[in-house]
Design a protein around this nucleic acid. Structure first.
Lengths: 127, 127
DNA sequence: TGTATATTTGCACAATGATGCAAATGAGCA
DNA sequence: TGCTCATTTGCATCATTGTGCAAATATACA
């Protein structure tokens, strides 16, 4: 999941949100991040400049390493993390660009739904 | 929750993400949106230009109205929706500005963590 | 006050999710 | 091949969550 499907806002209406909000806001993405432990893993990896192995990540976690492994796999399946195998170890890292882009797209979509355009709409369809 | 706490990136380091990612990414926010039914409610309300009552919203939902009421309350408690009572009815609407701002802040925070600054960093700390 | 409508809440039950342990799988190395 | 380490997976258990029904609460109105 988390395919970005780079679709421009159609701006056929002055409300751009009627099109694809349901697809953009995928509950699986939010489900992946609804657990405090998984959030912690994301933060841990985001603060890390390099990919980290499961063991390295699990060092600072109070839970069993199998739990960490499962959580990392969930974040990977949600498109939030990237995993690459080097030897016996699996190195996880945050898919920063994709994640940032998705959040940005969500922010823009919600912004486009604002009834009062106080948030400085960049496409001012003046009429 | 969902207090925005308008803190500027400190940019003391070239990685701005080390500060408050853990607070910014609140699992309660994601938990509120991890259910497909609640996502549908958010989309429904975002597509609506005006606030809608619980009954109006529940009309297009396959679940009991009590479930809708509970879901709306969860989204309200998460800071995603606004509720205001008019007579016997409670009208819900999306807190567009706040929601967009939160998503934007998250996007920026993740963007700042990108190891390769391919995503057009707006604050180019050139060195 | 009594009635009707809108919404919320208590409760029970089913479904889902998180966790730890142990076993299995995969990869490097002697 | 046999051994070791890293990671994943099966399984059982416990906790959390979603759901619907019924009752309770809140508000408007006759």
């Amino acid at each position: 999941m988390m395919q970005m499907s780079n679709q421009e806002p159609t701006k056929s209406e002055n409300c751009q949100c009627r099109q694809d909000l349901g697809e953009l806001f995928d509950h699986r993405f939010f489900k992946a991040l609804c657990d405090p432990g998984r959030i912690a893993l994301l933060v841990r990896l985001a603060n890390c400049s390099e990919p980290c192995s499961v063991s390295q990540i699990a060092e600072c976690c109070p839970v069993d390493i199998s739990v960490v492994s499962r959580h990392l796999a969930m974040l990977r399946d949600a498109g939030i993390l990237d995993a690459q195998k080097r030897g016996k170890e699996v190195y996880y890292s945050v898919r920063c660009s994709e994640l940032a882009k998705l959040l940005q797209t969500m922010a823009d979509a919600i912004k486009a739904c604002c009834p009062d355009k106080d948030s400085k709409t960049k496409d001012t369809n003046h009429e």
